Amino acid sequence: MADRLEFQGKLGWILEEAKEHANRIQKEEIERYFENDDLSDEQMELVYDYLLSQKVAVSGYERKHGRVYAAEEKESTLTQEEQTYLQNYERELQTRVGAEQGSFLPFLERVLEIAKELHDGSVFLGDLVQEGNVSLMLALKESGEEEKILNAVREGIEAFQEEQRDVHVRDRKMVEKVDELDGQIKKLKEEMGRKITLEELALYTDRSEEELRSVLKLAGEEVVDANEEG
C-alpha cells in the first residue's frame, strides 16, 4: 500500500511539474524521478501512457510508431498564429509538389513533419520550418541518402531550438537584473533624498561600474557619473 501511495505521489508531482511548463515535461526528468524504483520498460510505458491521458507531452520519448502524443493532441499545443501558418504552409506545399519538378520537394513535407514533431512551444513553428529547410539544402549538397539528409534536418532544428532557449534564458536573466537594479536605485534615492552617483550605486550593489552602466541603459534609470558632477 505504501509503495502504491508513493508511486501515485510521484505521478502527482510530475503532473504538477508539467503544468508549470505548459503541460510538457522532459523524458529525462521522469527517468530521474523513477531511477530508484527499478521500473521495467513496460512499466515506464504505462507511466508515459498515463501522462498522455492527462494531456501531458513528454519531450524526447518515442514509440515505434512515433511520439507519445498523437498528432491531433500535438496540434492543440500550437498557438492560433501557428495553426494559421501551418494551414497556409501545407496548402502552399501541396501546390508546389503538384506543379513543380525537383528532387528536394518531397523532402519539404518531411521537414514540416520533423518541425511539428520537435515543436515544444519555445520557438515559433515557422522558424523551425525555415531552419529545417536551410539544413535540408545544406544536407542535399553533402549527401544523397535520405536517412542522412533527414538526420541533418533534425539536428539542425534541435540545435536552433537549443540556441533560442539559451537566448531566452539570457534575456530573462537580463530582465531580472534590470528589475532588481531598478528597485535598488529607487530605494537608495529615497534614503539619500537625491540622485545617486554611479560610484555610490556600485558600492551599494557590490557591482562594477562597467556592469552597472550596461544594465542602466536597459533600465532607463538616471544615475550621475562621478566624473560628470559639478
Rank of each mutant, 00 (worst) to 15 (best):
177 K>C: 04
217 K>D: 05
79 T>Y: 01
209 E>Y: 04
46 L>W: 02
180 E>G: 01
179 D>K: 08
144 G>A: 14
217 K>C: 02
184 Q>L: 15
96 R>E: 11
157 I>H: 01
109 E>A: 13
96 R>N: 07
168 H>V: 07
159 A>M: 08
216 L>P: 01
189 K>P: 01
172 R>F: 06
207 R>C: 03
97 V>L: 14
96 R>H: 11
83 Q>R: 15
169 V>Q: 13
135 S>A: 15
97 V>N: 01
123 V>Y: 03
209 E>L: 06
11 L>R: 03
67 R>K: 02
129 V>C: 10
156 G>Y: 01
29 E>L: 10
23 N>Y: 13
25 I>L: 01
183 G>A: 02
155 E>A: 06
80 Q>N: 04
75 E>L: 12
224 V>Q: 07
208 S>E: 15
228 E>M: 06
198 L>C: 05
201 L>P: 12
150 L>P: 04
203 L>N: 11
39 L>D: 04
75 E>S: 03
109 E>Q: 14
170 R>P: 02
69 Y>K: 04
4 R>E: 15
185 I>E: 06
77 T>S: 00
224 V>R: 06
145 E>V: 09
58 V>S: 00
173 K>G: 01
34 F>N: 05
141 K>W: 14
1 M>S: 12
11 L>F: 04
95 T>S: 14
97 V>A: 09
63 R>A: 06
222 E>I: 10
200 E>V: 02
176 E>F: 01
144 G>W: 11
